[in-house]
Simulated scan of single mutants.
Amino acid sequence: MSLSGRYRLNILDKPLSRGKGEVSLTCFALLFAEIVQYCQNKSQTVPELQIRLHELGRKVGLKLIDLYFVRERSGKRETKLLSILLFVKSTFWKALFGKEADKLEHSNDDENTYYLMEKEPLVNKYISVPRDKSSLNCAVFVAGIVEAVLTGTGFPAKVTAHWHKGTTYMVKFEESVVTRDKQLEER
């Protein structure tokens, strides 16, 4: 208790869904640039660097789903494929970046594949990439987060980041996820 007799919430106790962007953008940019530099120092090639960023994103994503679903939703998780995708596109994206992702599309060619699009990912905004590493897309970090969230909530998927209309996250679900979803719809 504070001297005034009122309990003040710690930032860790505040709901994620009602955050006000309390992290300084400058601090985030500096921290993320250091993460990229750290991974780059441990990597020989751009693909190796992207794998390291993706794996760090997965670790962050696993912590975030625990935090979000325990604190915000009292353990209640989505059971349908479209529901979890809409949750990631809107609620989860907004908690992380202060806005929804720009677009969610289902692939015309593969029923297991969805595309989540963002014109200007925050993780790419303040990173300057040297010419010899022009194929580097730091959004692989976010792809790792999304992959961990989907897999950790019972929707195993592989998520990759690609340069296309900004950044497109290709979400490829395991066959069992689509089959289970169809069975749920039939009930």
Rank of each mutant, 00 (worst) to 15 (best):
R77A: 06
V70I: 10
A33M: 04
G166F: 08
A148D: 00
T167N: 06
Y68N: 07
S128K: 13
F155H: 04
L49P: 03
K20N: 11
K158E: 11
V129A: 08
V146W: 09
E186H: 11
D102K: 01
L184G: 00
V149P: 08
R73V: 02
Q183M: 14
P130A: 05
V140D: 04
E78M: 15
R131Y: 11
Y115T: 05
G144I: 06
G57E: 01
E78I: 08
T168F: 05
R52Y: 03
S83M: 13
I84N: 11
P130G: 02
Q44T: 12
A157Q: 12
L30M: 13
V88H: 01
A139C: 12
Y114L: 03
R131L: 09
Y68A: 02
E174K: 09
D110S: 09
P130Y: 02
V46R: 06
E72W: 01
L9R: 14
V178A: 03
D110A: 07
K20A: 04
D66F: 04
R77K: 06
A33F: 03
G154W: 01
G98I: 02
V70P: 05
L62Q: 13
E147W: 01
Y38D: 14
A139R: 10
P121I: 02
G57M: 00
I145R: 03
L31A: 14
V88F: 05
I11A: 10
K133Q: 08
G21I: 00
E120L: 15
T45W: 02
R52A: 06
I65W: 09
V149H: 02
G166Q: 03
L81H: 04
A95R: 02
S24K: 00
L56P: 05
K80W: 07
L53I: 08
V149C: 06
G154Y: 01
L3A: 04
S176T: 11
T179R: 10
G98R: 03
L62T: 13
E175C: 10
R8W: 05
V60Y: 14
L53H: 06
G75I: 03
A161D: 02
V123C: 12
A139P: 10
